[in-house]
Design a protein around this nucleic acid. Structure first.
Lengths: 339, 339
DNA sequence: CATTTGAATGTTAGCGATAACATATGATAT
DNA sequence: ATATCATATGTTATCGCTAACATTCAAATG
């Protein structure tokens, strides 16, 4: 490694003390204008770049936030990350991005590294099968700012920025029911993450509004990705004709896409044989064979909002904990059937 | 902020020196097994997390790499980032993600911060209108490992990992010409980034193979995104009927999608009135109205490969500079017309 | 039994920067 | 002319950790 230039080297070559150089470069008072000029010129000439590592050790601040994402290549998360990055960039923060691949142990390692790197705050969307509740709590209590984002975990003293999942699920299920479908199934995400629970709850409440019973065989468990949706839908299609749903509310768009594949493979059409809806407005939603009716989740804004909340929490001890819910809206396309 | 536990605190509460604690926790030789046990237990009990900032200051290594991406939410880059993350995770590196938004000045700021944070290496895909050649050179020479990825810049002593852009462009243009189209246009990216230049070159060589003249009015400049493609295609459509191309090779898929919109808006059909092809196999390519024939770019693998090269360069002084080209393949769908 | 040996531990210094305090110098006041 | 003060600069210690050298003490050696 070529040695980087240090304050001390600049100081020596100028015959002043390191402290003077530090003051000059940081624009402090009490430095002679002439000296300041000489220092800045010399620093430029020597190609000086301040060492943030050393700075951080003194200031106990790294101007860095850690982000833990279950799946980077998911269009929702990619957009959210971009929102986060743009928000913090203006505030002079940097982003350490980690990826849990929906796995609890990878998430744990990521969190531990972020702690070790002394990030000022952490933004996390919990992995689907996370069991790191103790760790979340420890971080929240240790003074590292922590904000949940999209998926939260109950009982942790941390803010959360998400959309109104329950209401979104309620609205889209209600929309299906308004079409007159009696048997509406739900492809449900794991119940230990908030979107799994909240969207199921919204689904149930919509059934309630229409005076329909919740039928357990119409609720099929899935993960949050295409393959899971495909498998879950397969199961529903194995039901006897009489019990088979005429409409399906999938917990998110990727799951809906997987389910669509299963439906086509079964020789059925969408929406005529089976209607389907998703959640998130994935970039592919308008493009699939039967364009997907879905709940629009403002991913980019969600990222920005979460980042802003995290920074407020870092910079202001008194910042209150709060749950921020952005509103969703329905995007009616064709997959839900025509009214 | 709650103070984090330090080595010294553990040492004091155990009545040993900080050095002994350090040795015990880092599994060095020359520590009594009993002492080691006590230290580890105590560290656990006190909730110790090593301070990587301090460690880095001593070791002159941060185990962190910086990544500079023009547009995170672009599906190609999102996949590549995921590949990068997965590759470096196993090697105990972390990723600082920055976003240039295709802007030279944001890119410059990002690079300077990464330098200041003393990342061990940088992976960059140059912004479309970057003019930071001097800075690239300075970084490459300063001893920070630097690897270009997807888009490179000539004349910098740095490795590059990309696909065989020229060959990919050649193959897909050739494919169009084999359909019998005489007038094939190209929506070309800026010539200061490699993909702009190389893909244009591949296009020209394919024309040459078919003994066709390069006609400047059939080469329309665009940026790399949907809106640019739309605008560029609009211009081509304004050409008199006799000069208008019957087929278009767009520099990448987003540009192709924009161009498709312009074509439909003009009341024409794809591929019957105008055939079109892209480059990158975006997640939307198979889904659009006339599924897009394109060049498959293995984004995830590209990310992994680039990350691996960067780490080799960080860990091995002798690692040679090289340009690594991954191979592309054609994905024939419908937008190129039927053979 | 004095001495060598080496394992276990301690001490000091330094990574690069800055906070806090100390000092020097010239200007101003009395 | 001497005291006072503000400005510019220097010195020291510290952030948390580790490399390099120093010390201790018990077991092994002759």
């Amino acid at each position: 490694m070529s040695s980087n230039v240090t304050l001390k080297q600049i100081a020596e070559s100028l015959g002043v003390s390191a402290m003077t150089v530090s003051r000059a470069l940081n624009g402090r008072d009490n430095v002679d204008e002439k000296t300041k000029g000489r220092v800045i010129a010399k620093a430029e000439e020597m190609g000086y770049t301040p060492n943030y590592i050393a700075k951080s050790l003194v200031s106990q601040k790294t101007d860095t936030i850690g982000v833990v994402i279950p799946k980077i290549a998911h269009s929702f998360f990619a957009q959210a990350i971009q929102g986060i990055e743009e928000e913090i960039f203006d505030e002079k923060y940097q982003l350490i991005l980690t990826h849990s691949a929906e796995q609890g142990d990878r998430e744990r390692k990521a969190l531990e590294t972020l702690k070790a790197k002394r990030v000022d705050g952490i933004l996390i969307s919990a992995a689907q099968n996370s069991d790191n509740y103790g760790l979340y709590r420890q971080i929240a209590q240790s003074g590292t700012a922590l904000v949940f984002f999209d998926r939260y975990v109950e009982g942790i003293e941390a803010s959360c920025v998400k959309v109104d999942d329950k209401m979104g699920a309620y609205k889209i299920t209600d929309h299906l029911l308004n079409h007159g479908y009696q048997k509406v199934a739900h492809l449900a995400a794991p119940q230990n993450i908030s979107i799994g629970k909240d969207r199921l709850q919204g689904y149930k409440e919509a059934l309630g509004k229409h005076k329909l019973q919740v039928e357990e065989h119409l609720i099929e468990a899935t993960d949050l990705h295409e393959a899971g949706g495909y498998k879950a839908m397969k199961k529903l299609l194995e039901l006897p004709e009489s019990k088979r749903p005429k409409a399906v509310f999938a917990v998110n768009d990727p799951v809906a896409f997987g389910a669509m594949d299963a439906i086509y493979e079964h020789g059925l059409t969408i929406p005529d044989d089976i209607a389907i809806t998703g959640f998130s407005d994935d970039i592919r939603a308008p493009l699939v064979k039967s364009p997907l009716t879905t709940v629009v989740q403002p991913a980019y804004d969600l990222g920005k909002r979460a980042a802003r909340k995290l920074i407020s929490q870092i910079e202001n001890e008194e910042e209150p904990l709060e749950n921020i819910e952005l509103l969703t809206s329905l995007k009616i396309r064709e997959s839900c059937g025509y009214l």
